[in-house]
Amino acid sequence: MWRTAFLALAVGFAGTAQAQDMPPVDWSGAWHASSFGFFETPADAPIGDPPPPPDDPRRHPPYTPRFEAIYQANQKRIAEGLYPDPVTVCGTPVGWPRVLATPDGYEFIVRPEETWILTENGPNIVRIYTDGRDHPPDDELWNTYTGHSVGHWEGGTLKFETVALNGVGKVILSRAGVVMSDKLTVRTTVHEDPASKLLVFDLVLEDPIALTRPWPVRVTFERYPPGTNMWDYACAENNRNPVDENGWTQTLDTDGKVIDVAPGK
């Protein structure tokens, strides 16, 4: 009897899997970011535009007074070379959506029920559920580095929402001093542009604590040549830039000795 029940269960699962069609996309291979950092880009902006310079107003999020003060304090620490980046603690994920703006390679694994974003840099895996589930109820959610993402496909376009993210104090969006609160919601649309062949991520960041309005940003990716390999590595390997207890990024020689000194020492 147990065998019959097991076979029935297996057939049921197989039927469910067959009922889900693969999205009509081919995002296979290795990719790399062709735009870096976060800056305001409306969804109707020309795809492939170069990023604005560091002092461009589009790089300044529409912050509330509280978070504008945090941002300005970050700017001061950046100028002093003391801006803390949690990723300097090896093994810490960069979090969402900063994971879209890291160096090295990416892979996008598409399945009917789920899409994964895998990065060569560090322990970063983003899971996007497209099997019809919703976010868990509030009493079952807790904030994490990549949060909880659910979405759906509209033809060759993936749309998803991410909630339950770590906020300021645990993660940063960029080393330019951009941070958000743990109430951040990110709504993302992904498609491959047929003209440029770029994979385009259009995101809208909404944060009732940090932002005065939704903040639209865009990140694009282009493919590496066919056959490009992805290689894992750990940031602790041959790390020549540890951070000391005061937040100063040190430089070590080949023998592990510090060859620079923090300001004021």
Rank of each mutant, 00 (worst) to 15 (best):
residue 46 P to Y: 02
residue 100 L to M: 09
residue 188 T to W: 11
residue 140 E to K: 04
residue 152 H to W: 09
residue 172 I to P: 06
residue 205 L to R: 01
residue 221 F to N: 07
residue 191 H to R: 13
residue 17 A to S: 03
residue 250 Q to C: 00
residue 107 E to S: 05
residue 196 S to A: 04
residue 114 E to C: 12
residue 77 R to H: 09
residue 181 S to E: 12
residue 173 L to P: 06
residue 20 Q to Y: 06
residue 264 G to R: 00
residue 153 W to A: 10
residue 51 P to T: 03
residue 213 R to A: 05
residue 130 T to A: 10
residue 254 T to Q: 05
residue 176 A to E: 14
residue 72 Q to S: 08
residue 175 R to G: 05
residue 254 T to C: 02
residue 29 G to C: 05
residue 224 Y to C: 13
residue 179 V to Q: 14
residue 142 W to V: 08
residue 185 T to E: 09
residue 13 F to L: 15
residue 128 I to Q: 13
residue 191 H to W: 11
residue 69 A to K: 14
residue 98 R to W: 01
residue 219 V to I: 12
residue 82 L to T: 06
residue 86 P to D: 02
residue 233 Y to K: 04
residue 144 T to F: 07
residue 13 F to V: 15
residue 26 D to K: 07
residue 38 F to N: 05
residue 94 V to P: 00
residue 253 D to F: 01
residue 128 I to C: 12
residue 25 V to L: 06
residue 90 C to W: 07
residue 169 G to T: 11
residue 232 D to L: 13
residue 2 W to Y: 15
residue 223 R to W: 05
residue 40 E to D: 10
residue 164 A to Y: 10
residue 178 V to T: 10
residue 234 A to S: 12
residue 129 Y to D: 10
residue 223 R to H: 10
residue 142 W to K: 15
residue 237 E to G: 04
residue 92 T to C: 04
residue 203 L to P: 01
residue 226 P to K: 14
residue 41 T to I: 08
residue 190 V to W: 11
residue 131 D to Q: 09
residue 57 P to K: 14
residue 4 T to Y: 15
residue 89 V to A: 10
residue 162 T to I: 08
residue 73 A to R: 14
residue 21 D to E: 12
residue 81 G to P: 01
residue 181 S to T: 10
residue 189 T to V: 09
residue 152 H to M: 12
residue 68 E to M: 12
residue 111 R to G: 07
residue 150 V to K: 13
residue 54 P to Q: 08
residue 132 G to Y: 12
residue 158 L to F: 11
residue 52 P to K: 07
residue 18 Q to L: 04
residue 204 V to K: 01
residue 183 K to R: 15
residue 150 V to M: 15
residue 168 V to P: 07
residue 189 T to N: 03
residue 217 V to G: 11
residue 10 A to D: 09
residue 144 T to D: 15
residue 159 K to F: 06
residue 262 A to N: 00
residue 121 N to Y: 01
residue 130 T to S: 11
residue 226 P to R: 14
residue 35 S to I: 04
residue 57 P to S: 05
residue 262 A to C: 01
residue 19 A to E: 03
residue 222 E to T: 14
residue 196 S to E: 03
residue 172 I to N: 08
residue 148 H to W: 15
residue 212 T to R: 04
residue 35 S to K: 04
residue 94 V to F: 00
residue 87 V to H: 05
residue 206 E to L: 00
residue 13 F to T: 12
residue 230 M to E: 06
residue 170 K to E: 15
residue 65 P to E: 05
residue 220 T to H: 11
residue 218 R to W: 12
residue 91 G to T: 03
residue 74 N to Y: 01
residue 144 T to Y: 10
residue 127 R to W: 08
residue 245 E to H: 01
residue 18 Q to V: 02
residue 61 P to K: 03
residue 231 W to P: 09
residue 249 T to Y: 01
residue 51 P to S: 06
residue 190 V to K: 14
residue 86 P to W: 03
residue 168 V to C: 11
residue 259 I to D: 00
residue 131 D to C: 07
residue 106 Y to K: 00
residue 238 N to H: 14
residue 123 P to D: 09
residue 35 S to A: 06
residue 236 A to L: 06
residue 14 A to I: 09
residue 178 V to R: 07
residue 229 N to F: 14
residue 169 G to R: 08
residue 92 T to A: 05
residue 30 A to S: 09
residue 117 I to H: 03
residue 10 A to E: 12
residue 114 E to L: 13
residue 27 W to D: 08
residue 57 P to I: 04
residue 214 P to C: 04
residue 75 Q to P: 03
residue 141 L to Q: 13
residue 105 G to Y: 03
